[in-house]
Simulated assay, not measured.
Amino acid sequence: MKNPFENGSGSAEVVPVDIRRITGAEFLALGMSQIAYMKSVMHDGEQLVAIHAADGTPMAVADDEESALDAILEHEMIPTLLQ
């Protein structure tokens, strides 16, 4: 899928986009690489914290919430809360 923020040369440079003219798929992808959320999970009887991309794709597992938050911030992502 084409990144609506690319300038055509493959550069990550941000260019203005008329958001009223992007496709549904492009709209859903906005922020996908910048937003992450944490969720408690059980694995082999151990309570861990899973880190997911905005679309729910699993990205990593941490021992605790503090480590998960540190990992999200270290990768210059924005942590968000689930409702």
Rank of each mutant, 00 (worst) to 15 (best):
M1H: 12
K2W: 04
K2G: 14
N3E: 14
N3D: 08
N3G: 06
N3K: 02
P4A: 03
F5R: 05
G8D: 01
G8W: 07
S9F: 08
G10W: 00
G10Y: 11
S11T: 04
S11M: 15
S11V: 02
S11Q: 07
E13Y: 15
V14L: 15
P16I: 03
P16S: 13
P16A: 08
P16K: 07
V17C: 10
D18H: 11
D18W: 09
I19D: 09
I19K: 03
I19E: 13
R20P: 05
R20F: 14
R21M: 01
I22G: 08
I22C: 07
I22Y: 13
I22H: 09
T23E: 03
T23V: 10
G24P: 01
G24C: 02
A25S: 01
A25R: 09
A25L: 13
E26M: 06
E26L: 11
F27M: 12
F27V: 05
F27D: 14
A29Y: 05
A29M: 04
A29W: 11
A29R: 11
G31Y: 12
G31N: 12
G31R: 06
G31D: 00
S33Q: 10
S33E: 08
S33Y: 15
S33R: 10
Q34Y: 10
A36D: 01
A36T: 06
Y37T: 11
Y37C: 05
M38A: 02
M38N: 08
V41C: 13
V41F: 09
V41E: 02
V41I: 08
M42S: 09
M42D: 02
M42R: 10
D44A: 03
D44R: 07
D44E: 02
G45R: 13
G45N: 01
G45V: 06
E46Q: 05
Q47S: 08
L48T: 05
L48I: 10
V49D: 08
I51Y: 07
I51P: 05
I51C: 07
H52C: 11
H52S: 10
H52R: 10
A53C: 09
A54I: 02
A54M: 04
D55E: 01
D55T: 13
G56C: 11
T57E: 08
T57K: 12
T57W: 14
P58H: 08
M59P: 00
M59S: 06
A60E: 14
V61D: 02
V61C: 10
V61Q: 13
A62R: 09
D64W: 09
E65K: 04
E65I: 07
E66I: 06
E66C: 14
E66F: 03
A68I: 14
A68T: 01
L69V: 13
L69Q: 07
D70N: 15
D70H: 13
D70W: 01
A71I: 00
L73H: 11
E74T: 04
H75A: 14
H75Q: 13
M77P: 06
I78V: 09
T80W: 09
T80C: 03
T80P: 09
T80D: 09
L81Q: 05
L81V: 08
L82K: 13
L82T: 08
L82D: 06
L82H: 04
L82V: 09
